[in-house]
């Protein structure tokens, strides 16, 4: 008894409804000439692969990776945007003060200081001068504080003003 007959006989006993269906005639159809044109379609794909013509795009679409592709593109664009913003608009950009200072004459600097003296921060200037001289800048020593306190409490302000005016 062949495999085919065996299957058919078994089905008649166990599943008569199923056995009554004509399975030789497939309900699925294919387009005309599909099988005569398929080898050529496959061949052209293998030729492309041989010649390295298949682009990454073809491969991604062929394997139906469209959603993954979209996510990847979004990530790449986002990363590029982040990089571009940080490169061009970052607050970290520090001007080259030495180069700028080289283009300004001493006369210009003096004029600028004379005009804007009131806007200079004494503390900042003190700090800068100390640093330029290689010293650590200390805001105000304990001795200075005590001295200031003594002057305020023990010296007559009017008397000093009078002496200064004389």
């Amino acid at each position: 008894m062949t495999n085919k007959e065996n299957i058919s006989d078994n089905l008649k006993e166990t599943a008569p409804k199923l056995a009554s269906i004509n399975k030789e005639e497939s309900p699925f159809k294919v387009p005309d000439n599909y099988f005569s044109t398929l080898p050529e379609k496959v061949r052209s794909k293998t030729v492309d692969l041989e010649n390295g013509k298949t682009s990454l795009w073809d491969v991604l679409l062929q394997y139906r990776l469209r959603p993954q592709l979209a996510v990847t593109i979004i990530i790449v664009i986002g990363a590029f945007g982040y990089w571009f913003y940080n490169t061009n608009y970052s607050d970290d950009i520090t001007p080259d003060y030495t180069a700028i200072a080289g283009n300004i004459s001493d006369e210009d600097i003096e004029k600028y200081i004379a005009l804007n003296l009131d806007t200079f921060d004494d503390q900042m200037l003190g700090e800068y001068v100390s640093l330029m001289n290689g010293n650590d800048y200390t805001e105000e020593s304990e001795f200075d504080k005590e001295l200031e306190e003594y002057i305020l409490n023990n010296i007559d302000e009017n008397l000093i003003m009078e002496e200064l005016l004389l």
Binding site: K45, T46, Q62
Partner: peptide
């Protein structure tokens, strides 16, 4: 079930075989 899907899958099979 669908012919176009079957066509895609079959071509992929042959590419893998190749």
């Amino acid at each position: 079930i669908d012919h176009d899907d079957a066509d895609d899958v079959l071509q992929n099979v042959f590419i893998k075989v190749w």
